[in-house]
């Protein structure tokens, strides 16, 4: 696994946590669809990459899972945010905002140049 995957993994984690916060318990497919829709189809990634990320989050105790039935009566594994996950989401969101803010300042058209 290269660096790109790590970056993707990092942002993916944040997206998964945010999705679960917004929509409540959800299965893997639902999470994937939601991320795709929210990103406005800009992120075209294989849904499969989501599952290792979910497993990792679960191992770290940020989400928990349990088998349930979907709206159209299908068995599916539902993920939901834990208390630790909520905290982690806040923390990661804050960090992300900070990062983008800093980057934005850098990228803002030349105030200090010239």
């Amino acid at each position: 696994m290269g660096e790109r995957a790590d970056v993707w993994q990092g942002t993916l984690t944040l997206m998964v946590l945010k999705t679960l916060q917004a929509l409540g318990p959800l299965h893997g497919y639902g999470i994937a669809r939601r991320i795709e829709q929210t990103s406005g189809d800009l992120l075209a990634v294989n849904y499969g990459t989501l599952y290792p990320a979910l497993l990792k989050l679960e191992q770290e105790g940020y989400i928990s899972s349990e088998w349930g039935t979907s709206d159209n009566n299908r068995k599916a594994k539902y993920y939901k945010l834990t208390r630790a996950g909520r905290k982690q989401l806040e923390k990661e969101a804050r960090e992300w905002e900070q990062t983008t803010e800093i980057l934005a300042r850098f990228l803002a058209p030349g105030k200090e140049s010239a």
């Binding site: 497919y29 639902g30 849904y47 599952y51 979907s70 159209n72 299908r74 068995k75 599916a76 594994k77």
Partner: peptide
Amino acid sequence: LSSEIESHLQLHIE
């Protein structure tokens, strides 16, 4: 894991 991915596929197919 297999059944989770199977259910994912079914949801998507539907």
